[in-house]
Nucleic acid binder design. Structure first.
Lengths: 340, 340
DNA sequence: ATAATTCAGTCAAACGTTTGACTTTACCAA
DNA sequence: TTGGTAAAGTCAAACGTTTGACTGAATTAT
């Protein structure tokens, strides 16, 4: 590998001059510049990144901490981050926290989470990253951890602490949009299969649904709201309850595609036609939603966009460390298929 | 940040001694060692990775080039790679090639692929990675590219050129196992919905199926083999053809879960019961397979294991560059559900 | 004509390690 | 005593850049 010294010798200048040509840090005569450029070309020179980083204190590397890369939205976000960073000449060190598998004892789990996050942060810091993007939803564990972070930090997907920069998607607005979509197609008796009762997305989405109904003077009866646990099976259970109601709802809004799938399974077993007898919509646009009978109308999570925005924010923060924290909430789009 | 010089001063020794304590590169008196260790603790010293790498020429960083992180098996492989590398103190620079979206013009596509791969490799090399793992299936483009690679290289998932180290899964054996599974459950008239006719997995899996049948003296009639294109829709089309056959097959082996899903859709429309009237099996264990009616028996791709093995191989290659290339083919397991 | 300024480029220290060559002291054998 | 060896550390160059301070010449202002 050719070094700066080699180029200096070849062009008959000092290494300082070569450095200035390479980085454009000083005005030089056209002839010298030309000579250096020729030498660089001839020797096929590329600056040594390590030396550069050691001297300048900047690595042009972002650490990306993900809770589990196998989680669907995570991969999309990482993809967006990577694309945007690459374009600006940044690299990405990815570290997977493996937070997907659950431990039985809740206290052990929290301890284990925190330790893994600690290790991950330590690894990234030892890599001299210029900034860190945290991708995930476990904000609970993060507050205490990132408190004394001197490295710029951006949360993607989750919120982190309120004083941090984050990028997320709009739970409330999306649910509101989807509900309006149902209303516009003539539905007034809209039931909901919600997620875990005390979870953040459940609360926000529920709020969005109520807002949309309220705006047209409708209200959702308590028995039309069933809380599941985000799993297929709970879609089955709760749908059965909803179908026993009188009057029966004309549309079911499941807060994710898995529960919507369970719901549609029951419906088809009962001999009910979707969308003629009853409409169903989901949330997430998971792969399964395309292959349901009929294909499910659902909400597309803007994963790539979240990644892109997070990458933009972290670069911004690096270049301007004193800037106030930014909050970006990205809109979801409705994927219109045949279940309404 | 405390440096080695600080520690040296604190412990009253030279930086050389500190270095030797930290790395265990020289025998030192217990007292000195102790003093240095105390100083390190006190000053909360961690060695600067950049300086270390610059001096030693090793970064303890592996570049991982993926065709598209959003592809299902890819995330699993990356997860395995990351876990294994982390345990050995290696970091991972991930670069996504974004090869998922297809271009219309085939020549443009190949050119674009090659350029992206070139850029990716250049990025990783400029990061001074100790080795590269390529995760993907587009071996076609790689032969010419990686030819003059001085950096250790391992292919995961795809084969690469025959003279390279690779880790992949067993197409043939898995298909053979699954076919035996069907045979053992009494099936003799087994039909196949294959993938693209000229693709490598199709050929190997087909071969495995024939082998299994042959071993029990059975043979698969030509009309029982239908070639699809890996998509849901082709599962529908080809199943209709298969059902029109006389005698009708008692089992259908779809070469992926998507086509199996299409198949099962037709079956249920026709009023045929799975598995009573006809058995169906798939391949890949995609999310959808769990939620079909009935849940689909399928083949689990050993993604994590592939990643683990690839990580092990790249570290081996780094420590022993002259070792001969290794080839590892990992077995798939059958996920037994209710479709047989 | 002199001083001040600009221009083009160089010098050398610094970033924080590693490591082969060296020094010093102690110990042992002949 | 002499020579040799082992043990415990140190020295200083090297890895390949960047960059503030400097120099010498040319140009401009007074």
């Amino acid at each position: 590998m050719a070094t700066m010294r080699d180029i200096a010798l070849l062009a008959g200048v000092s290494t300082a001059t070569v450095s200035h040509v390479v980085n454009g840090t000083k005005k030089l005569s056209p002839e010298t510049t030309e000579r250096v450029l020729m030498a660089i070309q001839e020797a096929n020179y590329t600056p040594n990144t390590l030396a550069k980083s050691l001297r300048s204190g900047q690595t042009h590397t972002i650490g990306v901490l993900v809770e589990d890369i196998r989680g669907l939205p995570v991969a999309g976000i990482v993809s967006g981050i990577n694309e945007t960073l690459s374009k600006s000449g940044y690299r990405m060190i990815l570290h997977d926290l493996h937070l997907l598998e659950k431990l039985y004892n809740q206290y052990e789990q929290i301890a284990s989470y925190r330790q893994r996050i600690n290790n991950g942060v330590a690894l990234l810091k030892s890599s001299n990253v210029d900034g860190i993007i945290y991708v995930g939803m476990h904000d609970r564990h993060l507050d205490y951890l990132f408190d004394p972070m001197e490295t710029p930090l951006v949360f993607a997907y989750s919120h982190g602490t309120s004083q941090d920069t984050y990028v997320t998607y709009s739970n409330q607005d999306s649910a509101q949009d989807m509900t309006r979509y149902l209303i516009n197609r003539g539905h007034e008796r809209i039931a909901v299969i919600a997620g875990h009762p005390h979870s953040y997305p459940t609360a926000r989405r529920m709020h969005g649904i109520r807002m949309a109904l309220q705006q047209v003077g409708l209200i959702i009866p308590d028995e039309y709201v069933r809380y599941g646990n985000w799993e297929y099976e709970s879609g089955i259970t709760e749908t059965k309850v909803l179908l026993s109601l009188d009057p029966r709802p004309t549309a079911i809004f499941a807060m994710n595609d898995l529960m919507a799938a369970g719901c549609m399974h029951v419906l088809s077993e009962m001999g009910l036609n979707v969308p003629k007898d009853i409409a169903v919509v989901g949330f997430d646009n998971r792969e399964i939603s395309r292959y349901l009978q009929p294909p499910l109308t659902t909400v597309q999570l803007p994963t790539t966009e979240i990644g892109t925005a997070a990458a933009l924010h972290i670069m911004e923060k690096i270049n301007n460390p004193s800037a106030p924290p930014a909050r970006e909430i990205i809109h979801c789009s409705i994927i219109e298929r045949e279940s309404v």
